[in-house]
């Protein structure tokens, strides 16, 4: 029988054989298109433990699938594919392949925490989303998310100098994420500042960009912070069974 609604079937599940003979009958060609089974064939027994070991994922085992998080979700209201309840279920049972289908939207969580306040089991779904995005990165399934890039730039500056310089954070963030520097909203912001801000403050800001001020006697703190960061990152990598840094 011909397949009328191919659009309803996942592309990878449609199979055509250029030359195929079954029981002596030649069934080559597109008219003998097959649909492969779509049943789930295995669980990854370690998946829940790995994500629970990352910051934010600790309470995932409490979930009872009521769907309060998805109902409360800001992103779900815009994109029905964004479904924390569903992903928590996949993670808890170790349906890795299913989760990976959504790897390009999981990072879109805006951390509004409406789910966190709606959750009757205190799962902290926002934390779970964070841990899951982190897990996807550590496992090499996704590139670093924009928010990770931002965090790294931000904390990198703090660790290096003890301070942040906002304009450099913004500039470097745009460079890391390959976005144009001349964002319309940024241009508008700078123009507004130039016209309305007292000259004295503008001069101080300009000096800060040029001089890159540092916190005094920062070296000792930097060493301690670096040590701690390395420790945590090593623990995270160990938790997901990943090797080396990233």
């Amino acid at each position: 029988m011909p397949i009328h609604e191919k659009s309803l079937i996942r592309k990878e599940n449609l199979v055509e054989n250029e030359s195929l003979v079954i029981d002596g009958v030649d069934v080559s060609g597109h008219w003998s298109t097959f649909i492969t089974g779509r049943s789930l064939t295995d669980y990854n027994d370690d998946m829940q433990d790995e994500i629970a070991a990352l910051p934010g994922g600790e309470n995932i085992h409490r979930c009872w699938q009521c769907g309060s998080c998805t109902n409360a979700c800001t992103v779900n209201a815009v994109n029905p594919e964004f479904n924390p309840r569903y992903w928590i279920y996949l993670i808890r049972l170790g349906m890795e392949e299913e989760l990976l289908r959504d790897k390009d939207i999981i990072w879109q969580c805006v951390s509004c925490n409406k789910c966190t306040y709606a959750c009757p089991r205190d799962v902290v779904p926002e934390g779970v989303m964070k841990a899951t995005a982190h897990w996807l990165e550590l496992k090499g399934h996704t590139p670093k998310s924009p928010s990770t890039e931002f965090d790294e730039e931000f904390s990198g500056q703090v660790i290096k100098t003890g301070k942040i310089e906002e304009s450099r954070v913004i500039m470097n963030f745009f460079r890391r994420t390959e976005q144009p520097l001349a964002q319309p909203w940024l241009v508008a912001l700078i123009k507004g500042l130039a016209f309305r801000f007292p000259v004295f403050y503008l001069m101080r800001m300009g000096m800060a960009v040029v001089r890159r001020p540092r916190t005094r006697n920062w070296a000792k703190s930097r060493r301690a912070i670096n040590e701690y960061v390395q420790e945590v990152e090593a623990a995270n990598r160990a938790a997901v069974g990943a090797k080396g840094g990233h």
Binding site: G37, R38, S39, L40, T41, D42, Y43, Q65, Y86, Y89, L90, M95, E98
Partner: peptide, 14 residues
């Protein structure tokens, strides 16, 4: 073999 009704998918797990 069965159906995982929360994700509406057949399962066939060893």
């Amino acid at each position: 073999k069965g159906e995982d009704t929360l994700i509406k998918r057949p399962v066939s797990i060893p």
